[in-house]
Amino acid sequence: MTTYILRRLLLVIPTLFGITLLTFLLIRLAPGNAALIKGQTGENGGHAMTAEVREQTIKLYGLDKDPLTAYGDWLVKLAHLDFGQSLVDHRPVLTKIRERIGLSVSLTGSALVLSYLIAVPVGIAAALRRGQRTDRMISFVVFLLYSIPTFVAALVLILLVAGGDYLNLLPMYGANSIDASEMSGPAWAWDRIKHMILPVICLTYGSLASISRYTRVSMLEVLGQDFLRTARAKGLSERRVIFSQALRNALIPIVTVFAMELPALIGGTIIVEEIFTLPGMGQLVFQSIEARDQFVIMGVVTISAFVTLFGYLMADILYVLVDPRIRFE
């Protein structure tokens, strides 16, 4: 088991190389760069940069080097766990990420838990009513949801329940109300939860299709197994046969599905945090892309890639833990 994990961890390294190199090249090949954009926005007292200052800035940021050399420089720094500085505000990338990662993790985490809580029962219900109206309804609804783009769902939700036009139940944007710093602990927490409801919904609904489908297929496969006949022949109630015996078998492949959902979720936070003005990693990366703030982008990408790859490893380990038939020696 330990050697297996070590081997898998070693595989993470080349994958990370690939992902970061690709990202780096894409950033460099995209039109514009941090210095040009800064120059346009006229950050220094409203004036655009002079050509001379722009040249200096480009040199300073290393934007004149060829992409591969620059990537090499970046890697060398990374080896010392130095993610570099933001080209926009010159703060360390790691500090900026640290400030924002908590919010994104709680968003994706809540979305993941919520999708499992909804999709697994839904998938089981579909399997138990295979081919009947309930089954067809469920599959229609989850695929309909799956096909709605996040930004459309977000805008519709805001219009319906947060815009004030119809129902003004939930806040429209931000992670907290403006006066949150004056709130007591529980009030603050409630305020935060209210702000998170719509973003979490937007991140969740897309995962329902895949998780519920996996559950349905897995359950159907188990429902045809001989050992359930044995369970019934023992005199167990149908409820026990399904929810104690069959479910245990059916859930084994499902525990690993979360890893497959991670990339979509992380991608989803970029749109969701931007729309709901949430100061998380997704918003950070969105703003950094606009500003061509390459080291911040690289930092976020590296960490996201690592989390995703780590998720796959976790999924494999979990699989071994929950399925007694599989043992890595």
Partner: peptide, 24 residues
């Protein structure tokens, strides 16, 4: 019927490997 199954009439099947639940 459940009281009958297993208590009065018990079964053994052809394929022991698939008749036992692998995860218990």
């Amino acid at each position: 019927l459940r009281a009958l199954r297993g208590k009065q009439i018990a079964y053994i099947f052809q394929e022991p490997s698939s008749s036992l639940n692998p995860v218990f």
